[in-house]
Each structure stands twice: as structure tokens, then as C-alpha cells.
């Protein structure tokens, strides 16, 4: 176990506690958009794909990096747009309800 790994472990455990706290009061109404929002957040794994593609030394790692960029970008951008569309629907409902 090197220093870097242990430090990562600290960050991991503390962030897990933070993750529980941050969304602990979410209303049922927002469950699906929040799931979609967190789905976009792990799209950040795209930067992992970029690092693999950018540092690849042979055809195999180039291929793995390409797929990483392709899927990672799919997760990140698709996730953001889908979440926005879901939340947009919420916004539109409010004035309609008031008119009625």
C-alpha cells in the first residue's frame, strides 16, 4: 500500500459520507431526475478514457481508449441532456397548474 493509495482511500470514504448527506432530504418527486443527474456525474469517467487514449502506446490500448472516449462521452453528454429534459418538464408543469 503506497501513500497515494491510502490518501485515495481517505478521499473515497469521506466522500461516501458526503454523498449520503447531500441528497438525504430529496423528495420522492425528484427521485428519477436525481438518478439521471448522478448518472451524468459518473460520466466524468470520460476523462479516464481520454487519459487511456492519450497515453496509449500500442493498438490494443488505442482501441480500448477509443471505446473509453466513445462510451464515456456518451454517458457524460447524454446524461446531462436527459436530466435537463426531465427537469424542463417540471418547470413547464408549474405555470399550467397555476392557470388551472
Amino acid at each position: 500500500m503506497n501513500q497515494e493509495f491510502l490518501l485515495g482511500l481517505y478521499v473515497l470514504i469521506l466522500t461516501i459520507f458526503l454523498g449520503f448527506e447531500v441528497i438525504s432530504r430529496v423528495p420522492t418527486l425528484l427521485h428519477t431526475p436525481l438518478m439521471s443527474g448522478t448518472n451524468a456525474i459518473h460520466g466524468i469517467v470520460l476523462l479516464g478514457g481520454i487519459l487511456v487514449a492519450g497515453t496509449a502506446e500500442n493498438p490494443l490500448t488505442l482501441l480500448l481508449g477509443f471505446l473509453g472516449c466513445l462510451f464515456g462521452a456518451g454517458n457524460l453528454f447524454g446524461g446531462i441532456v436527459v436530466t435537463d429534459r426531465m427537469l424542463e418538464m417540471f418547470k413547464k408543469k408549474e405555470p399550467a397548474a397555476r392557470q388551472a
Binding site: G8, V11, L12, T15, I16, F17, L18, G19, F20, V22, I23, S24, V26, H31, L34, M35, T38, N39, I41, H42, I44, V45
Partner: peptide
């Protein structure tokens, strides 16, 4: 690590 752990934890609670 931060973003992944954040989703892992909030996703489990969700």
C-alpha cells in the same frame, strides 16, 4: 474518486 464515490453513495441511498 470524488465524483465516483459521490454517485456510489448517493445512488445507494436513492
Amino acid at each position: 474518486v470524488v465524483a465516483g464515490a459521490l454517485v456510489g453513495a448517493s445512488g445507494s441511498l436513492l
